[in-house]
Design a binder for these strands. Structure first.
Lengths: 340, 340
DNA sequence: GTGAAAGCGCTAACAG
DNA sequence: CTGTTAGCGCTTTCAC
């Protein structure tokens, strides 16, 4: 089997290279008969255009990069990453793009790989996962003119395209639910406040309380780190201040928090109502099952790709800033049952 | 800033395109002075060669594809995938390759994407994750002449390059440990036997018992599905046959199995010793902590990449068939403590 | 040591 | 409607 090129197909079909090119790219201006003849040859030979050559000619590769800097490697501990990447991959398959993955493990790799991503003409665009509002790579992306969309970064100052879950709204929903159920002393265990998601959820907590006429008590706010152990420890601190209910900024922390509650002989939700955030698979299986805010992670990944392709095709303006709504999933940890 | 090409650098440095190319590619046959001069211009302008053009000329893209067919989407439920992909990514960064990710979600996508992977000249090689001995894609890879390495597939008939954890040896180690501790009635909960890893671990269980002069009892072999619930259910069946110890083919199933043991009022390891497989983070945190076989997953990913690059550079012969050793991690679920 | 020239396989004006 | 002709940016003989 000889190497198949446009040229050889053209020869076999008795037409010129351009005609074959037109047929392959489904362009108008080819007669039915010729088109059919060429198609037949293509089918028969199993010809596939060389995408590298095409990229060189069109200055487009059809490839998008997913960049995950080293701070974000924490993604890998929970099921966030797998679901996100499934969404991203599904959308990029569907749109005919190919996905290049760049996990940066250390600063050296970042220094070596970032310039390559930006200058070598390999990528049509970049998806960048971050939750810091001041990652230096964003500035470099901006300077390079490379189309990009960030996932999980909403920054007021430099208007960049981003998609994220609406963490503020989710937290407001969670806390409002507790208020509605009649709890008075509502505490929160936050994520690490260096993370934007953690900040946003804390903001939501505050907004919900204030808008419902509750006062804020600094003793009822405890910083965690999104891990089970962190939630456990934070709850131990919190217990001294006797909250009736707590909004925990992640399911993993909620599991730890409930462990701490159990250990002092209290029960959830009777002595302490819990609402958390994420809706991991474990959330439904815990004892008691968690009332939590479900994040549409896979959807978020798909939307990120669609937004990026839109930016690539239609330019950066206007800036796309997309927040995805969350959903309150009511189970028993909040004590809603007793009110029904 | 004008577009930077070899041509423009050549002009700035007052030399020809070929000379710049030689400098960029670190080839011999350029005088010190000229080389330095060219280097200076490159540094100063920040020139990066266009990799698409280079690929077209060299017929190499420096890109490897990681293909995950739909059966393997189960990878995403446990921490296997994140760790594997971290290893793959680390090695491919280190070797200067770029990694393209193909998650195939359904048959349509497989049909559409497989031909593209094989013919379009985009990929230098493919890493294929599977645990079926008869995936049709392997045959297509073979026919296409595309260099590839399989992860998790050891098939005697068609000799293909693969890397995997040595599941047989791991299981032998686990079961031998139980035998050594003096247990007589040793059961096993297997993975789904459609999976090669599950088969291998069952083989190891049998080998260990037979080689130690124990007899095999079909009542002590129960098929699970690698999930917590599956392990729970399998153990419930097993309890009727009163085993003293059990080798469970995954940590997740072991957690379920221990739950079933607890529910009938038995304790681990006094009434039932448990050894499992994987060494997930949870294995150390369970009650009691699991004695288990640790798999070097990240290492496996790195090795897969190195093997693939070796195949790409040096041809498919001889066939590389690499099995990575596992490690027995002794904690308390096997009752070893009481013997120390 | 250095440069000229011929591709790599495709797209995209521009003619006819 | 179809073919001719330049490129896309780089590598790689082959002369000098």
């Amino acid at each position: 089997m000889h190497k198949l090129t446009l040229e050889s197909i053209a020869e076999l079909a008795g037409v010129s290279r351009s005609t074959v090119s037109r047929v392959v790219n489904n362009q108008a201006g080819v007669s039915e008969t010729v088109r059919d003849r060429v198609m037949a040859v293509i089918e028969h030979t199993g010809y596939q255009p060389n995408s590298v050559a095409r990229s060189l000619a069109t200055q487009r590769t059809g490839m998008i990069g997913l960049v995950i800097p080293r701070q974000m490697q924490t993604l890998f501990v929970d099921p966030y990453f797998p679901r996100l990447i499934q969404g991203i991959s599904a959308a990029s398959n569907q749109q005919g793009s190919t996905l290049a993955l760049f996990l940066l493990h250390n600063e050296d790799e970042e220094n070596r790989i970032y310039p390559q991503l930006l200058n070598r003409g390999t990528l049509d665009g970049v998806l960048f996962i971050t939750n810091s509002t001041e990652d230096p790579f964003v500035q470099r992306l901006l300077n390079s003119g490379m189309p990009f969309v960030t996932i999980g970064r909403d920054c007021e100052e430099t208007p960049t395209n981003f998609v994220d879950v609406d963490n503020v709204e989710g937290a407001v929903t969670a806390v409002s639910h507790l208020v509605r159920l009649g709890y008075e002393r509502i505490a929160t265990i936050t994520g690490p406040l260096a993370s934007l998601a953690a900040q946003n959820r804390l903001d939501g907590y505050r907004q919900a309380l204030v808008s419902r006429g509750h006062s804020l008590d600094a003793n009822l706010i405890m910083e965690g780190d999104f891990t089970e152990a962190g939630g456990y420890y934070a709850m131990q601190q919190l217990l001294a201040h006797e909250p009736e209910a707590v909004f925990v900024a992640s399911d993993a922390m909620a599991l730890g928090a409930m462990r701490a509650v159990r250990e002092v002989g209290w029960t959830v939700p009777d002595d302490m109502a819990v609402v958390s955030f994420d809706d991991l698979p474990q959330a439904a299986l815990s004892d008691p099952p968690l009332t939590t805010i479900r994040q549409p992670i896979k959807r978020l990944g798909m939307l990120a790709v669609e937004t990026l392709l839109d930016v690539i095709a239609n330019g950066v303006m206007p800036t796309r800033r997309i927040l995805l709504p969350t959903e309150l999933v009511i189970r028993s940890s909040c004590g809603a049952d007793s009110f029904v």
